[in-house]
Design a binder for these strands. Sequence first.
DNA 1: TCCTTGTCTTGACTAGTTCAAAACAACGGG
DNA 2: CCCGTTGTTTTGAACTAGTCAAGACAAGGA
Lengths: 157, 157
Amino acid sequence: METTWTHRIRAAGLRVTRPRLAVLEVLAAHPHADADALVTGARIQHPTLSPQTVYGVLEAFVATGLARRIEPAGAPALFELRVGDNHHHLVCRSCGLVADVDCVVHAAPCLNPADPAGFVVDEAEVVFWGLCRACQQEQQPQSVQIDEHDIRGGAIA
Amino acid sequence: METTWTHRIRAAGLRVTRPRLAVLEVLAAHPHADADALVTGARIQHPTLSPQTVYGVLEAFVATGLARRIEPAGAPALFELRVGDNHHHLVCRSCGLVADVDCVVHAAPCLNPADPAGFVVDEAEVVFWGLCRACQQEQQPQSVQIDEHDIRGGAIA
DNA sequence: TCCTTGTCTTGACTAGTTCAAAACAACGGG
DNA sequence: CCCGTTGTTTTGAACTAGTCAAGACAAGGA
């Protein structure tokens, strides 16, 4: 398993280091983790890891195309390894859970503005907002407070 | 002119105050301004205005549907008065300029995910990323540095 | 004009992220 | 297999956008 990560890191032109392997492994297990969750998760394998190091690792991953950074409005940035297939995201307004949605058109931009106002568009970012299954159930029975199960997008269960 | 704003504020169930009128007027003149730009702009009419007051004004506007808050990834939040017509945005990767794009389907959500994964979707947020006309011209001649004309989304020219 | 209540002001504070410099370690060459 | 170069990590501080709380203030109905 780890060999795969090693190869992918090296293929991206990066040196293979312990922090990078740790972050990559956590990211693989938690496909929409935020920086904080990645620090926590990666510390299981590398306890002395600092947040700044993780930011550095992520920056390198994003720059080389190993990872992608997504920033849902009003929440810390999330990172995912699914890159290059131009998919989109579903975000729960209540708990922040993020799910992937395949794009019907697999090439970017997958849709075009009617009047691009002179812009040359290279990407259409689509975020669907709504309620995930769990939050729908919580809100129907007897309108429970929403903060009860504060999973948020990035947290590691 | 001001009478119009007065009416709109009151119609929203809010008291008509000087900070609110000032912010509303700046927002009308600069349709995609960030909080900082609004403070600067509104101070022309009301020099003692503090950032916190503007945040409060904007919160009230957004809560009552007078204004809408948009948060392009990696930039401070922008505010606009165009609400309720479910339009989308074009953002320039280089200078941050934001332009409106009409939505072909005028009701939210204007498109549906192929597999909503159990989510009940109420909005599809679409952001088109690309280069605005000015930045295209700047990058072709002799690949000029991009920070030259740092208009950014919210700044007031 | 007075009173109530919503709004503004002031100030401190937080989360998320970035910057800079020095210590360190990966890995290609000898 | 060790060494040196160079990219990475570490450490620590700083920064920005935005939030919170409490008292002063003013809008607008009586």
